[in-house]
Nucleic acid binder design. Structure first.
Lengths: 330, 330
DNA sequence: GTATCAATATCAAACGTTTGCGAAATTTTT
DNA sequence: AAAAATTTCGCAAACGTTTGATATTGATAC
C-alpha cells in the first residue's frame, strides 16, 4: 500500500495540490470549509508529510547532529537528554552518533551529518583527535559546531565544557577539611588532557592551602589498575586515610579493593570522587562526589547552538560549574 | 557558502547532470577519462550527495528506526551496538528514539519514523502499551516491525526476545547446587509480565527439583525497596543464606544492604542475579550472573528485519538463550 | 456600468537526484 | 564505403513538497 501524498488528497477532493498544502498548514488564503474537508480526508487517509520532500524544498533539515564517545556513558546520556528536551521544544530532531573514541568513526559520522544536511552539530572530540580541519570546513559551509566536554584549544570554535579545574578544587577543599594524615589522589590516563587539568588544579590547590598535608599522586588508566594500586599501597605501614578519585572508572576500581580488603568507610578511609552520581550511589555508604552534570551542559550547549544558528558567529568558551554532593564516605 | 550539487559540477565540467551522476557511481556507460575528471572535481569541491534528494527519488530511506525505553540502559545499549554494527554492513543508518517507557513518546516516535519513511522499525514496547493498532498500520504500509525484549502477545508480529524462563531456570539450578537452607528470591514489579514469567519459571523449577528447599518469594519494584527488604529480612532469627535477584536494579539494592550489614559474600550469603554483566562486576567478589546479552538479541533482530524487508511476511518468535557467568558470589 | 478590493483557489517553478530512453560519435564488421 | 554495433553522453520525467505570482470569483464603491 502506497503512502498518501498531497497529490492523492488533491485528486480525491478535486482541489489543487497547493490548496491542499495550504489548507493543512492553516494558511489564511484558504476558506474554513475547505480546510475542514482537507483535514478530514488527510486524517482518514493517514496522511504523513514526506520529511524528505519538505527538507529538499525548504533546504532546512531541522536536524541536529550529536557525536558522543558512547551513549551508554551516563554523563553523555544526560547531556543528550537535555539537548533532546530543548530540541523538542524548538522543533528540531536529533541524530545521535557514537565515535567510540575513534577518530575514524568521528569522521564517518560527520560525513553522514553533512549528507543529511544537519542544521548544526554538537561534537565531543574523540580522545586523540587529528583533523580539526574538517570542523573548519563545516563552519565554512555554515554548519555551526558546538563542542562540548572534550573541546579543541583553537578558540575560533564555540565550546562548552565542565569547569574541570573547579571540580578538582572543590574536591581538594573537602579533602583538606577531612584533615587526614595521608592522602592518595588518583588520576586517569596521564596522556589525556582532562587528567592533566584536574591533577594540576588539585595539586596547586593542595600545595597552597595545605602545604604540609602528605599527598601521593598516582595515575591509573583503568579500573583494574586503580584496584591493584589500592591493594599494593594499602598494605604499607602508614596506611592512607583519604582517597580522591578523578572519575567513576577509578572509583570502581578503588571500591573493589575496598570491599576485598574490608576497609571501613569512612572511618578507616575517606573517599571522594568526581562523577555524575550514578556509580557513587551504588555503594553503602554512598560516596561523596563533586557533580558534573551533563544535563546542564546540554542545556548550555543548546543555547549556544541556537545563538549560532540565528546570530551567525559566536566564538566563546563557556563552562558549567560543579557542586558538591554529600554522601557518607568522607 | 552554498552546497555543491550535481548541477554545479556539471556546469563546471560542461557535462550533463546525468553524466556526472553516473560517473560518480561508476556506471559502465561513462568513459574512464570522464569519470576521473568528475571524481577529481567532486573531491576538490567537497561534493556530498544530498540524502534527501536521493531518498525522495529512490523512495528508499535506508534508515531503520529503533525504539528503546532508555539508551542508558546497558542491555539496550548493547542491543543498539549490535544493530548498528549490522546496519553499517548492510548500508543502513539508524534513528534511535527513547520512549522512557511512556506510550505517548512511543507514539510520537513512531510518527517521526513514518514521516522519515524508515525502512523498518525495531520496537521495544513501553511497559504499559495500549495501541498495538498503530503497529498494525505500519505493517499495512509495508513497514516491517521487529519487536524485541518486551513484545506483544499477538502472534501476527515478528518478535525476538531473551529466553526469560530459561534465565530463571539456569539461576534456579545454581541455587539448588549451592544447597542452602534458606533462599530468598527477589523479583521486580509484579505488574510487569517479565517479573511474572521469571517468577513462574523459577518457582516451578524449584518446586519440582528441590521441593524441600525453603524459598521465600518477594517483589521489589525499586532498588530502594530491595535494600529495605534485605535490611528487614536479614535481622530475623534464621537468616537466609542464598539470594536470587531478578535484575540489576534488585541487585543494586541488595548489595547496598549487604555492604551496610557487612555480610560476607559468599560465605554468609550466596548471591546470583540476571544481568548483562556490568553491575555484577562492580563488586568484590564479582557477582555470579546469568547473562542476558542485548548484543546477541540485536544480531538476531537484524536478521529478522532483513528477512522481513526482503521476503515479505515472516511471523515468528525467536529467543536468545542465556548462559551462566561464574563470579565469586555463589 | 466600470473600477476597486477582498477572498479564494490555481499555476508553475524549484529543491537535487536517479534512470529509461534516445542521440551522437566512434569503432567494427562486411 | 556503407551498414552495423558499440561506446559515450544528454533529455526529460519523476519523487513530494513549498511558495511567489496569477487567475477567478463575487461583492462593494463610485
Amino acid at each position: 500500500m502506497t503512502n498518501t501524498t498531497l497529490k492523492l488528497l488533491a485528486q480525491q477532493l478535486q482541489l489543487s495540490i497547493s490548496t491542499v498544502s495550504r489548507a493543512l498548514k492553516d494558511h489564511p488564503d484558504i476558506a474554513a470549509s475547505t480546510k475542514a474537508k482537507v483535514h478530514a480526508l488527510a486524517q482518514s487517509m493517514d496522511y504523513e508529510p514526506n520529511a524528505y520532500a519538505i527538507q529538499l524544498r525548504t533546504q532546512n533539515s531541522r536536524i541536529l547532529g550529536v557525536i558522543v564517545p558512547a551513549i551508554s556513558n551516563l554523563f553523555y546520556d544526560s547531556f543528550i537528554s537535555a539537548v533532546e528536551e530543548e530540541s523538542r521544544k524548538h522543533d528540531y530532531a536529533l541524530m545521535i552518533m557514537q565515535s567510540s573514541n575513534q577518530a575514524e568513526n568521528e569522521l564517518n559520522n560527520l560525513k553522514i551529518f553533512r549528507q543529511n544536511r544537519v542544521s548544526g552539530v554538537f561534537a565531543c572530540l574523540s580522545s586523540h583527535p587529528e583533523n580539526l580541519e574538517v570542523y573548519h570546513k563545516m563552519n565554512e559551509r555554515e554548519i555551526p559546531v558546538v563542542f562540548f566536554d572534550i573541546v579543541p584549544k583553537d578558540n575560533r570554535f564555540t565550546k562548552v565544557r565542565m569547569a574541570d579545574e573547579r571540580c578538582a578544587i572543590i574536591a581538594a577543599e573537602k579533602v583538606i577539611q577531612r584533615n587526614g594524615k595521608k592522602v592518595l589522589a588518583l588520576f586517569g590516563d596521564p596522556g589525556l588532557s582532562i587528567s592533566q587539568k584536574r591533577k594540576n588544579a588539585f595539586q596547586n590547590f593542595m600545595e597552597t592551602y595545605a602545604p604540609k598535608m602528605h599527598v601521593t599522586y598516582l595515575n591509573a588508566s583503568s579500573s583494574k589498575e586503580a584496584e591493584d594500586l589500592i591493594q599494593k599501597q594499602y598494605s604499607k605501614t602508614q596506611k592512607f586515610d583519604t582517597v580522591f578519585c578523578m572519575t567513576d572508572e577509578i572509583l570502581i576500581g578503588v571500591m573493589k579493593a575496598v570491599q576485598a580488603l574490608q576497609i571501613k568507610v569512612p572511618s578507616e578511609l575517606g573517599i571522594i570522587t568526581i562523577s555524575n552520581g550514578f556509580i557513587p550511589n551504588l555503594y553503602h555508604p554512598k560516596i561523596s562526589y563533586v557533580e558534573t552534570s551533563g544535563f546542564e551542559l546540554g542545556k548550555l550547549a543548546f543555547v549556544q547552538m541556537m545563538a549560532n544558528i540565528k546570530g551567525g558567529k559566536t566564538q566563546t568558551e563557556l563552562t558549567v560549574d560543579a557542586k558538591y554532593i554529600e554522601g557518607g564516605s568522607l
